[in-house]
Structure formats: structure tokens, C-alpha cells
Computed example of a mutant assay.
Amino acid sequence: MDFDLPESAIAVRDGVRAIAGRYDQAYWDRCDADKRWPEEVWRDLVEGGWTALAIPEEYGGGGQGLLELAVALESLAAGGAGGAASFLYLLTPAFGGLTIARHGTEEQRAEFLPRIAAGELDTCFAITEPDAGSNAINIATRAVRDGDHFVVHGQKIWISGVERADFMVLVTRTIPAAEARPRVSGFTVLLVDVKEAVADGTLTYRPIPKLGTNTVASSMVFLDGVRVPADRVLGEVDQGFAVLWDILNPERILAAAGGVGSGEMVLEVACAYARERAPFGRPIGANQAVAFPLARIKAQLELARLMTYKAAWLWDRQRPCGAEANIAKLTAAEAAWQAADRAFQTHGGMAYSLEYPVARFFRDARIAKNIPVAEELVLAHIAQHELGLPKSY
């Protein structure tokens, strides 16, 4: 067993860290406060080729894999971006680039991948609905064939990045859930031209006020007769569940990478404060009550990193990785949250001041325990599929 990162991943880590180092915590605080996409960072990443890592070389990408993409996300988060980093790598590099590279037709790859690699086209992903959150089987957004188009009606919620997306990777039902046999059949994944649908009034959206992660908006999306050409189906009609899992597993793996990087960054901030703060004549970090929780978080982050890399490695080899992706997401989210909580405690009363970035760490870390899948459902999946316990939901 070789636990050394490949040279490609080391180059990614160093290159992305160098970009992250150009932007301090005040920059990320301003982006969050202004609810502004970190455009400067995004352009630096695009120009360096760091967002096109997993796009095949023949389409202008780096020809690498999910492992390198996970390392890039982790490095950006650890370099200062924290929770904001996840969206920079999920929305377009993963939801658009990875999905089209693996499941797109030759025509779709030629149309979309070069533009994604060049930073000329942005994507978002839409699956969650008001009555179908964690239970994707019950989604009700319907796509009905009409000649050489599908006509889509439905509603989505918590769709991040739609306001800046050119195309949406949209999960629909072409067979209603009540009629589908088996229940996982009847899904069709479509590439929706967001700008066109907004212009003709068939797609509208409304941002949801959020506690944190405000560098990107998350919106309610309303689809009222959106017309999608039939040649923009990803995968096969009615058989989109296979495509869906090739979106959800990378999403969990990349979320885990973001958690590991965020946890490392927050831990670094907490330790720096613990080394400097000396109210009783010696640094508070010399006290085991402060030091031991921080040390435990470091151990948790290292374990989460190992599972994240393993899950990405498996996905790149098209091997089953559902358990590993879930475990990586579970452990990384918990470690990142513990890091934010201990950073808050280590800073004492000053953590409550918005002059310090700890409040942002706290807000951004908490949601990772709920998205992209709630930890309770991850535990239920592990209990059923890894331990052989009875199905609980």
C-alpha cells in the first residue's frame, strides 16, 4: 500500500495553496458579508487550470481525476477560504465537468467541456425539492416528452449558484415515483439552459436568506414549462439513477475534502491564538484543557483525510465507493464542526466579535453536518449496508 500522494496531486496542492495565499481572512469576510462570489479567486483558479483538473485533455482540461479535484478543494479551504471553497469546486468543476465527462455524449462533451475548462460556462445542480430532500426517490419535478424536446414542470429548493449558472444539471422524473418499477427507475437528468429559460420566463428563482456560506446564493427554483432539447439528456432516459449516484458520491467526497481543509484552517487559527494569548503569564495553549481538544481534532482530521482520499481513489477507478464517500463526509463534517467549536471556545469572548473570523467559521461549519446528506442518514446507510442491520427508513 502506497500512501504517498501522486506527483500530480502534490502539484495541485502546491499550486492552489499559492493562489489561496494571496487572499487573507479579511477578503473572505468581505465576500461573505457582501454576499459576493469570490470572483478574483475564481479567475485565478481558472487561469491556472486548477478548476479544469478532471476534464480530459482533449477538451482543454488537466486529464486528472477526482482525487486531484479533492486535493485542490482541500488546499483552497485550508489556505484561507474555509467553507466557501466547496462551492468553487462543486458547482462547475464537479456538477458540470465531472458529470459531462463521464456521462455526456461525444457531442455534449465537445459542446460543454472546452467552455467549462476555459471558465466560459458555469453550472449548478438541482435535485432537492420541498417534499423530497434526503429522499430523492420521491422527487416530483416532471419532464414530459414533446417531439424533440422535454417540457419540465416542478419546483426545486436549496439550489446553490443558479444566479450565475449558464446550465443546470437537473434531476427530473420521466416516470412518476408511484408508477416506477423498480422505484429507482424513471429518472432522467437534463442539461437546462438557465439563461434561456430565465429569459422566456419558464424558470424563475428566489434566493433564500441564509445563516452562512453567503459567497453563493441558494435559491428556490420554479420550473414552469421549461423546454429542453432531447439531445441534452445526460445518460439514458428513465435510467438517470446511475448518473445521479455519479453526482452524489463525488459531491460527498468533495464536501469531505472541504471539511478537512476547513478544519485544518480553523485549527491553525485556534492554535495561533492559543500560542499568543497569555492572560495569566503563559500561553493558554500550555493548558491541557485547551491543548488536548485541539490535538484530538488534529487526529480526527487526519483520519477524515485518509478516507476522503480513499473514496476519491476508488471513484477514479470506477469502483464502488458509496460507503467510503459516506464515511468520509461524516467524519470530515464532524471534525470541521469540532474545530470551529473549539476555535470559538479557545478565543473566549473575542470569538463573539465580528472583528475575528471565528463567527464565520462557526456558521459555515455547522451546515456541513446536514448537507449534502444529513449525518443521520449516513449512519442509517452504514448500519444497513455495512453492518447488516434492519432498514430504518
Rank of each mutant, 00 (worst) to 15 (best):
D238C: 08
V162T: 11
K156F: 05
Y205L: 00
P229C: 06
V216F: 11
A136I: 15
E179I: 00
A180E: 04
K195W: 04
D246Y: 06
M220Q: 11
V233Q: 08
L190R: 06
V184P: 00
E264P: 01
I157L: 00
T188P: 02
S160C: 07
F241K: 14
L223H: 03
G259P: 03
A143W: 06
G261Q: 03
A217G: 11
V243I: 09
A230Y: 09
M220N: 13
I253F: 06
D148E: 15
F187Y: 13
D131N: 14
R164Q: 07
K210R: 15
D131C: 10
G258K: 05
V221E: 00
F222T: 07
G161R: 01
Q155S: 09
V152F: 05
G161P: 01
A242S: 15
A197Y: 08
F167P: 05
V260G: 14
D148L: 04
V221G: 00
L190Q: 08
I253G: 04
D131F: 12
S134C: 09
N214A: 08
I137T: 09
K156D: 04
L190C: 05
L244P: 02
S160W: 02
R142I: 10
V169R: 09
S218E: 13
A257M: 07
G133V: 06
V198G: 02
A140Q: 14
M168R: 10
V152G: 12
V189F: 08
T215L: 03
P207I: 04
G263I: 02
E196M: 02
N138R: 15
V169S: 06
Y205C: 01
D148T: 11
T204M: 05
E251P: 02
A256L: 12
G225M: 04
F187V: 01
R173C: 13
D166P: 08
D166R: 09
A177N: 15
Q239D: 15
K156A: 08
V228I: 00
Q155N: 06
I247S: 10
R252P: 07
N249F: 03
G261T: 02
T172P: 07
L248F: 07
V266H: 04
F187W: 01
P182Q: 06
R183L: 14
K195N: 08
V189S: 12
A197I: 05
R173V: 14
G240S: 13
G263R: 08
A197W: 06
I247H: 05
I208E: 13
I137E: 10
G235Y: 01
N135C: 10
N214Q: 14
R227A: 11
L254P: 03
P182I: 02
G161C: 02
A140E: 13
S218A: 14
K210S: 14
R173W: 14
D193E: 09
T188W: 04
V243H: 10
A255G: 13
E251Y: 10
